[in-house]
């Protein structure tokens, strides 16, 4: 085991106040530590010196919950491809390196404290259509609804999205298109998703716009930064589904609703 001496430039900010970069020296970091464990060590030392520890998001530390974030040296989740911050290890750095650690920056992701941002906008987009409405009774017989292997695999690929927000952080426009396209697409390709497909697509895109995310300029930085390697082809599909849904909404029949009831 070897040890690394690192120079950190860490973003410090309290909600609603302007932030700044703080220079923090991080000597003697074991190279088998994960990035979050390195932050734990740094925080222990700050606390023992009576200083305020750096606030950052983390939960499962297994790369599947989507809680950890951090823009590391200008890239969401750091330099390792298809890896979350918790699965990034310090052996990917060299002793003497200066490491910039920043929050995922977007108007729709306000800073709560230091590196912690509020990603509640993603939840509101999900609530606007990222679901199917089914009767939750006894489970259906297996394979009662045949789904082709290719479609099932594709839906699973989209469903791999952990909602971490790296796509927003990587995009120069802070666009949420990769997230929204994965969450809408995983249902829009499946038979269970068909009844609410148009409503889902319109609802989620409109909520995305309302949250103040930017617009996609087809540069695919999101795909490069995504720890789950979600493909930008889902964005192609969202564009297509949205166009179809909007035309149907504009020109299609609106069913007459019988009076009474509610």
């Amino acid at each position: 085991m070897s040890q690394l001496n690192l120079h950190l430039k860490v973003w410090r900010q309290n909600a609603g106040q302007p932030g700044h970069f703080q220079d923090i020296e991080a000597p003697e970091i074991p190279d088998h530590a994960s990035f979050l464990e390195m932050m734990d060590i740094v925080n222990e030392r700050l606390i023992s010196k009576g200083q305020e520890p750096v606030a950052f998001d983390h939960d499962c530390r297994e790369g599947i919950c989507g809680m950890c974030s951090m823009q590391i040296n200008g890239v969401p989740h750091g330099p390792e491809k298809a890896t979350t911050t918790c699965q990034l290890h310090m052996r990917k750095f060299r002793t003497g390196d200066t490491i910039w650690v920043e929050p995922f920056r977007a108007k729709a992701f306000p800073v709560i404290k230091d590196l912690v941002v509020d990603r509640g906008a993603f939840d509101r987009i999900q609530q606007a259509g990222g679901f199917i409405s089914v009767r939750t009774g006894a489970p259906q017989d297996a394979n009662a609804l045949p789904i082709g292997k290719v479609v099932a695999d594709a839906a699973m690929d989209a469903a791999a999205c952990i909602g971490c927000g790296a796509c927003v952080a990587a995009c120069k426009n802070a666009s949420a298109m990769l997230f929204v396209s994965a969450k809408a697409g995983q249902l829009n390709v499946l038979p269970q998703g068909q009844p609410e497909k148009d409503r889902r697509t319109l609802g989620m895109v409109r909520q995305m716009d309302k949250e103040g995310f930017g617009n996609c300029t087809n540069q695919y930085e999101c795909e490069a930064a995504c720890p789950k390697e979600i493909s930008v082809r889902w964005i192609t599909k969202l564009n297509r589904d949205y166009a179809v849904a909007a035309v149907k909404e504009a020109l299609g029949n609106t069913p007459k609703v019988a009076g009474g009831g509610d």
Binding site: G19, Q71, N73, W100, R105, A174, G212, G214, N218, Q219
Partner: peptide, 27 residues
């Protein structure tokens, strides 16, 4: 109008922001 929205979507700029795959032309 799209560009204005894009600029407004990130009011606080990054200290470091690396483009990994996009071309200069696209920026």
């Amino acid at each position: 109008s799209l560009t204005k929205q894009n600029n407004a979507a990130r009011p606080d700029k990054y200290g470091q922001h690396k483009a990994q795959v996009s071309s200069k032309s696209s920026h």
